[in-house]
Design a binder for these strands. Structure first.
Length: 576
DNA sequence: TTAGGGTTAG
């Protein structure tokens, strides 16, 4: 009767309460041989196995009257499949201590756990056991070994084990294929792919992804077209390849061709539009997405934050919060939200977020900390930013750049320069954002020569200055009264200068009462931004400063006549 | 027993 009851749970929901009841009955009736069966059934049931359930199973395993390798094996296998690798491996070690002979299930599952936790020693000792126990013929264990060495990055051993396998299946071939792909050896991967006696959709997706990563989309497409069977991942790999290459139209063409899409498809496309700054298209897709998960929200919030629409980002974050249980913000969401707050100069939000993080036990990661460094810097709290920076587990180009910029805008040029030196010493390659911060520091400190030198050194780091960098340089030279040099610098630009560049020259001309360059700079500003009247005012001021009252009046009446809209000052503190 | 595609900071 009891046996029947235990068996009836096969593939049924088995709650911990029911299991405990049955277990109690087993103990009362002294039918201890049913205990392993209970463990087995427990592992097979579709119940959500929480930590307390597993503790319970562990207890049964340890109190079995007779140690039972089968029960241990299926528990280890279950844990490994569920991604609880540490737990799986420690059970494997425990069963050894009990003197149990591990099944091939237990061995391959423990190997899987070692592969995913980088448990090199554990995996290698299981390899030794494979020989000792004479299970060299088991294709599952051997394949798990190939996978283990592949994940460890030990290609030679992976290949040796693979070559020595008396019997191989498609999984074994896929494992060695992914080994070469992970190592970036596409040539060898291709050779393996061509040699495979049988290919499944995993083999095809793997090679497809290998080619997509090289950026050779013609080749990738040719593989895609030859696939006998395609899964979502096949389509998504292709689309993501086009997105990475910046070929958003091609990505969209295949997106539209799909009859069915999963969330990854939608999010890949939204992220693609984010990268190319097409917020409108991203938003359209987000609205059309049938079942938005929290990753979709993350993608869209980041899209707004990355494309200078911080208010929209916060609005969507607010909507996300209102959705309640199913969709919860995580660290990724918060990193974007902090970035949005930073753009708004809104420190209060920042503090709110910090308390939210603490309240919900969200793990602070380096992304979030870097966003906070930026936020506190922009709000003038450099000390706090510095504290966060010093506490980072790993400092990279993004965090250094944030901190350098933080020092720069808060008048700490020396600190910014020191940080840059530290970064170079740590062999971290500076990029565009790093130089923006550093040049800003030189600019604030009025260090013209040093700034100039820094600007010229950009090419040594393989960084091509953008319009923003030129704008800072023009500002630096202009403030020092070196207007002609500033103008020559603009003329030498390979990209079209934006109003930031010409505006910097125009403002410098106002300070130094220079009509000649002022007129040139103003003319460009008028053309680039016909709706902004500030430039007319500046030129009018220049005329007035040299006593050319008629011209000054002409400028102002020009302004009136065109009924130009007065654009408010573009200070981020005013936007809140 | 195998992989694979998605969101994050300056």
């Amino acid at each position: 009767m009891l046996l029947h009851r235990v068996k009836s749970f096969l593939n049924n929901q088995l709650t911990i309460k029911q299991a405990k009841q049955i277990h109690a009955q087993i103990l009362i009736t002294k039918l201890n041989h049913l205990q392993p069966l209970l463990v087995h059934q427990f592992m097979l049931s579709k119940t959500n196995h929480s930590a307390s359930v597993l503790m319970y199973v562990r207890k049964i395993l340890h109190h079995l009257q007779k140690p039972d390798a089968f029960s241990w094996g299926c528990t280890i296998r279950f844990l490994s499949q569920r991604g609880q690798f540490q737990e799986a491996f420690s059970l494997y070690v425990e069963m050894q201590k009990l003197g149990l002979y591990p099944s091939t299930h237990a061995m391959s599952s423990a190997l899987r756990a070692c592969a995913r936790t980088e448990g090199k020693t554990g995996g290698v000792s299981i390899h030794a056991q494979v020989h000792r126990y004479g299970v060299c013929n088991c294709v599952f264990v051997q394949t798990a070994l190939v996978d283990f060495y592949s994940k460890l990055g030990d290609i030679d051993t992976a290949k040796r084990v693979f070559d020595e396998m008396p019997e191989k299946n498609v999984v074994s071939w896929n494992s060695i294929l992914s080994c070469y792909l992970k190592a970036g050896n596409l040539g060898e991967a291709r050779r393996v792919f061509d040699e495979m006696p049988k290919k499944d959709v995993i083999s095809w997706n793997s090679i497809l992804s290998g080619y997509a990563k090289t950026g050779n989309m013609d080749q990738t497409l040719s593989f895609f077209q030859r696939m006998p069977e395609r899964s979502f991942a096949s389509w998504n790999t292709l689309i993501s390849g086009y997105v990475e290459r910046g070929e958003i139209e091609s990505a969209r063409r295949f997106f539209d061709m799909m009859h069915q899409r999963n969330n990854i498809t939608w999010i890949t496309m939204i992220a693609g539009y984010t990268k190319c700054g097409d917020v409108k298209s991203a938003c359209e897709l987000f609205d059309k997405m049938p079942e938005k998960d929290h990753l979709a929200f993350n993608a869209m919030i980041s899209c707004y934050a990355q494309n200078s629409q911080p208010k929209e980002a916060l609005k969507l974050f607010d909507e996300m919060l209102k959705l309640g249980t199913n969709i919860r913000p995580d660290g990724v969401t918060l990193a974007s939200v902090i970035s949005a707050c930073s753009q708004l100069g809104e420190l209060r939000f920042g503090s709110w977020i910090e308390s939210y993080i603490n309240k919900h036990g969200i793990q602070m990661d380096d992304h979030m900390v870097t966003a906070l460094i930026d936020l506190y810097s922009k709000c003038g709290n450099v000390d706090k930013a510095f504290n966060l920076f010093n506490g980072l587990s790993k400092k990279d180009v993004v965090s250094y750049s944030a901190m350098i910029a933080g020092c720069a805008i808060n008048g700490k040029a020396d600190d910014a320069i020191k940080l840059f030196q530290k970064m170079v010493d740590a062999q971290i390659q500076p990029n565009l954002a790093t130089f923006t911060g550093l040049l800003t520091a030189y600019n604030h400190a009025g260090m013209v020569e040093e700034g100039h030198q820094c600007f010229n050194s950009m090419k040594d780091s393989g960084v091509v200055p953008s319009s923003d960098h030129y704008a800072i340089m023009v500002d630096l030279l202009g403030r020092a009264g070196r207007l002609e040099e500033a103008y020559e610098l603009i003329k030498s630009m390979h990209v079209k200068p934006h109003t930031g560049v010409w505006g910097a020259l125009l403002r410098a001309c106002t300070v130094h009462k220079n009509v000649e360059f002022g007129e040139i700079a103003a003319q460009h500003c008028f053309e680039l931004e016909p709706g902004t009247d500030g430039y007319y005012s500046l030129l009018a001021n220049i005329y007035a400063s040299v006593g050319r009252w008629d011209d000054s009046r002409r400028m102002r009446s020009n302004m009136e006549r065109k009924k130009l809209a007065r654009i408010p000052g573009c200070s981020w503190t005013e936007l809140t």
